[in-house]
């Protein structure tokens, strides 16, 4: 075991997957010689060569379309889209092909591929470099969406994603790349896809979150503890397929749920999680589910970003609002 940051966890996972399976190839803009703009793929081209760690031309739809072809023909491609804000250009392949290939080929073809992209804001980056587009993907059937919030999960989830027989979108909370450290097993291991993690135990309310926002929620939970409120913070880790059993276990215990995330609330994955809880656990709830997300507006440039993406204060407000409501 070694102390690593999130970025090193991902790098570790990629390296070990490539060592283990010669079919794994990495492709994307600047991923080779430059090691990626965040250095996530640092050292990989040196170790595995320019045929397996490929600097591509500037063409996102080309990267992802080729990734589909590579996967169809037996490779295990891991492609990178440099920033979340450049994902919209690849949605043609994601929506029309990723999740549909297995079904429309009547099970003959599958797409064991991974699409990696950084996720989220608050790193003072330019426009389109700080977005949280997960709902566009979770809305698409046939694909899996994962997002780690600890270095250990970063490694284990990536290895699981690479080994998964279906296409997996792997989001990397970029604000955590170098700010979160933790023990990461040296061995090759998988963190199971479809399993949430209780990041902090509590009894009064379940706070569900993912990615960098998990850490914001943990901070909020600490503040709330001082005021006598016990929050259970659940890190979903996999957005689709959701760990319903894990969510239900926590919400049944606390009787209250809040979903916190970085994207605008309308049509968000938080909306889906909230709807599921209402549909299935209505009788167990002591108050309606509350969402804390970004506003329904274009994400502003970085001067105002911290007023757009919820901070711990807004999570605390959300929890208090929820606690103040009568049982339905």
């Amino acid at each position: 075991m070694a102390q690593k940051n999130l970025l090193q966890g991902i790098n570790d996972g990629l390296r070990q997957a490539m060592e283990k399976d010669p079919r794994v190839v990495v492709l994307g803009e600047d991923v080779g010689l430059n090691g990626g703009v965040f250095r996530v793929t640092e050292g990989l081209q040196k170790q595995f060569g320019a045929e397996r760690v490929v600097d591509t031309p500037l063409a996102e739809l080309g990267i992802v379309g080729c990734t589909v072809g590579l996967a169809l023909a037996g490779m295990r491609p891991v492609c990178e889209i440099q920033f979340d804000g450049f994902l919209p250009a690849v949605m043609d392949q994601v929506i029309c092909h990723f999740g549909r290939m297995r079904n429309r080929s009547q099970g003959r073809n599958s797409l064991p591929l991974v699409l990696r992209a950084p996720h989220g804001g608050l790193i003072h980056a330019p426009e389109h470099h700080s977005e949280s587009p997960e709902a566009y993907f979770t809305h698409t059937p046939g694909i899996k969406v994962v997002i780690p919030s600890t270095p250990e999960d970063a490694k284990g989830l990536l290895i699981a994603a690479i080994n998964d027989p279906d296409p997996v979108v792997y989001f990397e909370p970029k604000r955590l790349y170098r700010t979160v450290k933790g023990e990461v097993p040296d061995a090759y291991f998988e963190t199971p896809i479809g399993k949430a993690r209780v990041a902090r135990e509590g009894t009064d309310i379940t706070v569900l979150s993912w990615g960098a926002m998990v850490h914001t929620c943990l901070k909020a939970a600490e503040e709330l503890e001082k005021e006598g409120v016990s929050c259970e913070v659940v890190d979903l880790r996999t957005l689709t397929p959701l760990d319903w059993a894990g969510i239900a276990a926590s919400v049944e215990k606390t009787g209250r749920a809040l979903v916190a995330h970085e994207a605008p609330n309308t049509g968000s994955w938080a909306a889906e999680v909230g709807a599921l809880i209402h549909e299935r656990l209505f009788h167990k709830l002591r108050a309606p589910v509350q969402r804390v997300g970004a506003w329904d507006i274009r994400q502003p440039l970085f001067q105002l970003e911290k007023y757009y993406i919820p901070d711990a204060h807004r999570v605390v407000r959300g929890v208090k609002k929820l606690l103040s409501r009568q049982a339905v």
């Binding site: 803009e29 600047d30 080779g32 430059n34 600097d55 591509t56 031309p57």
Partner: peptide, 11 residues
């Protein structure tokens, strides 16, 4: 150049 990609590898 396109970040780290030289022209010869672009096209």
């Amino acid at each position: 150049w396109a970040i780290s990609l030289p022209r010869a590898q672009q096209c």
